[in-house]
Design a protein around this nucleic acid. Structure first.
Lengths: 253, 253
DNA sequence: GAATTAAAGTGTAAAATTAACACTTAGGCC
DNA sequence: GGCCTAAGTGTTAATTTTACACTTTAATTC
C-alpha cells in the first residue's frame, strides 16, 4: 500500500460538501455496520480507537451519487454497491470536537471549513465482498450495530438515522435479498427481520406471509452438519423480488 | 418594500450549500405548490416567466433546518412552518442553464460556484398564512401541482421528488391536519387524499376507515349555502392525530 | 444405540379487515 | 314543484390477521 498523502489529493474537491456511507451487513445473527479505523486513539482513559463512517469531500465534477460510490471505493475497496441517499447533516459544529478537528488537520487542505454531509446507506452481503482499506482508512471493519465503538463527528447520529430508515423501509418493502447469502433458510430470513425490526416474529405466520409473496424459490438442498433437523435452502427470484419492491406492500406481524 | 441589494447581503453565506422549500397547499380541490417569481422572462417565444422554489444559500452559523426556516421566511414571509428534509440534489450542472446563470449573476457574490441544495417540504393551510414576497422574490404564488410553469434550476425534479415523498408518506401516516382548514367536511378530506394519491376512493369505505381512527371530532355545525345536502364539519383531535402519526398505520383503498 | 437437544416444519379456527356495491336525504336553483 | 348535487348510510363475501402446540430430523452425549 502506498503511503497516504492527503493534502496533495485535495485538488478538485469541494471544501464544503462531503458524503458518508452507512453500509449494513448481516452475519446470520446480528446487523453490522462497516466502519473505518481512522487510526487515532482517544487520549482519555481507555485508549479507545476512534472509528468513522467511510466518507469524504465530493469532487467538483461529480454528482452526489457518484461521490458516494467513489468515496466508498477509495476507502474500503467496495465496488458496484447500490447506495441510497437518506439524509443530509449540517450542524455548524459537527466537526468541531477536539479529536475530530485534530484529525481533519492531518487530512484536509481546509480543515476548518464548514462541511455539510450527504448520507447514503446500503445493504450488502458481507461475505460476498472483500474489504481493502486504503486512503486515510487504516482498516475497514464490520461492527455490531448494537455495540458501536466511539465514533467521530456526528456519525453516531447518522448511523441511528440510517437504521431508522432501514427499519422503516423494511416494513413496506421486502428486504433480505441484499443482505443474505445466495442460498439461505427461512430461519435466517426471519432472524434478519427480527434483527432489523428488533422484535420477535411468529414462525408460522412469518413463513406463510413471506412465502405467499412468491419471490422465494425452494431448493432441493438442505443444511448439513447442523445438530437439529436441517432446514431447506431458498433463493430469491430476483425478478419477482424486484417487482414486489415496486408494488405496494406492508409488512405486519 | 426596500429594493433588493443582493450581493451585499452575501456575507456569512456558504457559497456551496443552499436549501430549497417545497410548500404544499390544498384549495379544497387540487394540490398546490408555492413558487416565487424571480422576475425573469424567457427570451424564447412565449415570453413566459420563470418561477422557482423559495431557496437560497445557507449561513455559516446556522444548521440546515434553521436555514430552511429562515430562507422561507425571507422570501415568502411564512413563519413557524414545520419543514421536513427529504433529499439533497447536487448535480454539477444543476445551475448551468443559460437563464439560470444569468439570474445568479444578479443575486450571488459567487455566481459560478457549485451549489448542492438540501430540499425540504411542508404542508400548510394556504388560507391560514399571508404571503409576503421579499428579497429576490418578486412575488410568491400558489400554483397547481398538475400544471406548473417553467421552473429554474432542477426545481421540477425537486418538486417531483417531494410529491413522491408526499404520496408515499400519506400511505402510512395520516395527512390532512396540516393542509385542511380548522373545520372541514369528510368530502374535503377525501378529495385531499384523492389529490395526493391521484386515485379515486370509495366514499363509504373511506369514511369508515378514517372515522375508525378516531382523531376526527364531529361538530354540530354544518355547511350552509351549498346547493345540496349540507355536510357536517369535523375537526382534528390534535393529540390523537399526533399519536396516530407515530403509530404503525397503512392506508389502503 | 438410546436419550437428549435444537431448530425445522406444519394447520386451524376465530377475529378483523377489506372490497364491492346503491339508494335515500337535504338543500339550493330554476 | 321538479331538478340537480353531494351527503350520508349497511351488508355481505372474501381475504387477511392473529394466536397457538406438536411432530420431525439430525447431531451430540453418555
Amino acid at each position: 500500500m502506498t503511503p497516504f498523502t492527503p493534502k496533495l489529493t485535495e485538488a478538485g474537491l469541494n471544501p464544503n460538501v462531503s458524503v458518508d456511507c452507512v453500509i449494513f451487513g448481516f452475519d446470520g445473527e446480528r446487523l453490522k455496520v462497516l466502519l473505518i479505523d481512522r487510526d487515532q486513539v482517544i487520549s482519555a482513559k481507555g485508549d479507545e480507537k476512534i472509528y468513522a463512517l467511510p466518507g469524504n469531500l465530493i469532487k467538483e465534477d461529480e454528482n452526489l451519487d457518484e461521490a458516494a460510490e467513489r468515496v466508498l471505493f477509495e476507502l474500503t475497496g467496495l465496488e458496484d454497491i447500490f447506495l441510497e441517499q437518506f439524509g443530509s447533516f449540517g450542524d455548524p459544529k459537527r466537526l468541531t470536537k477536539e479529536h475530530d478537528s485534530q484529525w481533519l488537520k492531518q487530512i484536509r487542505a481546509h480543515p476548518e471549513a464548514r462541511v455539510i454531509t450527504v448520507a447514503y446507506y446500503s445493504l450488502i452481503r458481507a461475505d460476498q465482498y472483500e474489504l481493502h482499506a486504503s486512503g486515510f482508512a487504516k482498516d475497514a471493519i464490520w461492527h455490531d450495530i448494537e455495540e458501536l465503538p466511539p465514533l467521530g463527528f456526528d456519525h453516531s447520529e447518522i448511523i441511528e438515522s440510517a437504521l431508522k430508515e432501514l427499519k422503516f423501509k423494511s416494513k413496506y418493502q421486502p428486504i433480505g435479498f441484499e443482505l443474505l447469502p445466495e442460498k439461505f433458510t427461512l430461519g435466517q430470513l426471519q432472524k434478519l427481520y427480527e434483527a432489523i425490526l428488533n422484535i420477535e416474529l411468529d414462525k408460522r405466520n412469518f413463513r406463510r406471509k413471506i412465502l405467499k409473496m412468491s419471490f422465494l424459490t425452494p431448493l432441493k438442498e438442505k443444511q448439513i452438519g447442523v445438530p437439529h433437523k436441517p432446514a431447506r435452502y431458498y433463493t430469491f427470484d430476483r425478478d419477482k423480488y424486484q417487482s414486489y419492491k415496486s408494488q405496494d406492500f406492508y409488512f405486519t406481524l
